[in-house]
């Protein structure tokens, strides 16, 4: 099957200071590369997870795809059509077919609009105001499992979980082929997170939508994604089938990230791979392999030579950037034992 969305060598650059200040301080390169040479593709009906810590550039990838942040280099193709360099008007037809939900469940809804107005926004923007707004609102609210009388509410009268559902309903309004979900569980309680993830899973089963999920929470990607990519300092360090990465991470950063997952079990004997230090600043990218400053397996070559992308011998879809990838045995030793079952008092 051909790719629905194909991103190649995407680079997004931010200015760190104004041109005058750069001149005054003698800064030759007043930019940081928030996203650097990112390539991936999403097929129809597939779910890809983009995982990374704050500052890894994962949200910037999403914003670049949606045209909110122009890339300096690289190509973004939707069904073969190049999207970079298009004007807002030229891009508009594609924004019907791919939509995005944002991090803040309530803050991403226009505060003075009712749910009904919010849900008819996409129709009005795309000149489809002849549709029956009332009927469409009801259809969308039902689709995300909210009572239809919510149509009269304002965003601040919704709980986080309800607001998130409204955001998803809005993204679904024009029957898109791809939804980009930026931190879909951010700001939600544990008891509601599952609801939202289940909603995405159900929509995908029913409507065959492709989903790009962006999150720092590994537990989110585990259950819902087919493939996942791990970002560090704006680059993909590893990408592959989700289950395989959870079972056999090849990049030491992935391994550390997986083991940083705290367990709701006081007796979980974790042989945790704690990584030292913090994510370096984008303004001072380390030389060679950018993870070498924090890597426990660091060798001499790592600090000078940038690792090329290697492909797993078992699976051509699993690739990573590391001079000394973890052997499957090392990786497997990390596999945590099954959790102690919750006592069966009731």
């Amino acid at each position: 099957m051909s790719a629905l969305l194909r991103v190649q060598d995407l680079c997004v650059r931010f200015r760190t200071m104004g041109p005058l200040k750069a001149l005054a301080t003698g800064t030759k390169h007043p930019f940081v590369d928030a996203v650097c040479g990112v390539s991936f593709e999403i097929r129809k009906g597939e779910t890809l997870g983009l995982v990374g810590e704050s500052g890894s550039g994962k949200s910037t990838v999403a914003r670049a795809i949606m045209g909110l942040r122009p890339p300096v280099r690289g190509s973004i193709r939707f069904e073969g059509q190049e999207l970079t360099g298009l004007t807002v008007a030229e891009r508009k037809p594609y924004l019907r077919r791919m939509t995005m939900t944002f991090q803040d469940p309530i803050g991403s809804l226009s505060p003075r609009l009712t749910v009904r107005s919010l849900l008819s926004e996409p129709f009005r923007i795309h000149g489809l105001s002849n549709r029956d707004a009332g009927a469409e609102t009801e259809r969308l609210l039902r689709m995300v499992g909210l009572p239809t009388d919510f149509a009269r509410r304002y965003p601040h009268q919704l709980s986080g979980g309800q607001a998130r559902r409204v955001g998803v309903a809005r993204a679904l309004a024009l029957n898109p082929d791809l939804i980009i979900a930026d931190e879909p569980t951010a700001g939600l309680d544990v008891s509601v997170q599952g609801e939202v993830l289940n909603l995405f899973a159900r929509l995908q089963d029913e409507l065959g939508i492709a989903i790009l999920i962006i999150t720092h929470n590994l537990n989110v990607v585990r259950h819902i994604t087919d493939r996942m990519a791990i970002m560090y300092l704006g680059r993909f360090v590893e990408i592959g089938p989700t289950e395989q990465i959870f079972d056999q991470p090849r990049h030491p950063y992935t391994q550390a990230l997986l083991s940083a997952n705290t367990e709701p079990d006081p007796d979980a004997v974790l042989n945790r791979i704690e990584i030292k230090g913090e994510v370096p600043s984008l303004m001072r990218r380390p030389s060679g392999c950018e993870f070498h400053t924090r890597c426990r397996y660091v060798q001499k070559i790592c600090s000078s030579v940038f690792p090329e992308t290697s492909v797993s011998p078992n699976d051509a879809k699993h690739s990573f950037k590391c001079h000394f990838p973890l052997e499957p045995e090392t990786a497997r030793s990390l596999q945590q034992r099954p959790p102690v079952p919750i006592g069966s008092r009731f």
Partner: peptide, 18 residues
Amino acid sequence: LLECDPGRIRKRTRTLPT
């Protein structure tokens, strides 16, 4: 609450408890 925590659900599932 404990059942909801996706951290303790090892087996891949499409329906998480809520």
